[in-house]
Amino acid sequence: MCAGGEGKSAAPGARGMAPEVSAAAPEARGMAPEVSAAAPQPAVAPEARGMAPEVRAALVDLLCQLADDELTMGHRDSQWLGLAPDVEEDVAFSSIAQDEVGHAVYFFEALRQLGEDHPDALAFDRPPAARRNALLVERSNSDWAYTVLRHFVYDAWDAVRLRALTASRVPALAQGAVRMLREERYHLLHMETWVRALGQAGGEALDRLTAAVRAVWPDLGDLFDLGAHADTLLSAGVLPQPADALVRAWVAEVRPVFEASGIPWPGLPDPAPASTEVVVPGGAVVPGGAVVPGTGVVPDGVVVSGGRPVVFGGRRGVHTEALDELLGEMTQVSGPHPSARW
């Protein structure tokens, strides 16, 4: 369970109630009513009623993937504040960052309605092993070429995923997806324009862009992973398209832009989810025990296949040191004062 950590399962069907949130974290954060008032109210609860436990678990996992992707991407984007190539771009880029965090809030609210923790607790208090974001979005920003290329391939994936979710049987996902797609259109357009411009400029810009492609590509398999519950998501109609269909749609989105930018199409990376190899961030092989360096925890995404432990990346809670560092900064204020409101 990504959201509540261990043993924090909530009774399905508890509409609008947050069962057993005695940990006081939600109230302690103090900002709950404002967040709720500002955020569109996701309507998950009716679906949760009578939802089979494995479907609920799959839904929670997917919501965490969506929320964590958007929060982490928005956080990385916000680090560009005051440092973008020009003041006009600084303002434009910051709006995109705010949109991403706003979308994360929507998904965290949806989790709360399923009986999971308060959005702030979910965003700030979960350890890396409980996070479901793709590795791609947690990587540090590097240069502007990496930033816009990473953003472009992520936004294209996000758009494809959201388009599929508009047909979800979970109303919160279907309704949220329709609204988010409208905002993501500008993100995609803006990033696409950047990629094209850097490619067409040639010279240093094209060199940097090419280097960015090399850096981004190994993370794609992880980005495309739909997590440990992918089969249930599909069969229950929560995410009514399989990963390979999404990947095809993603290629249709991304490849023409590469062609217009003068970047040779690198081909698709191996589909990581189907592999039986040990896959860990950074390329190091983790021996049988699968303890993740830097966290000291056994991620709950470890599954055994053919007698060998198979550890996947971000969607299974296995992250890089970049996420540790990001979270360390993010919780610097809230961390040492667990009972305080902010």
Partner: peptide, 25 residues
Amino acid sequence: VPRAPTLRRKLSLMAKVQDEIGHGQ
């Protein structure tokens, strides 16, 4: 901004800093 203690504060601080840069523009 990266250390703002709640989601709401994170968003409002981002918007505020963005405004400052926008005023600069």
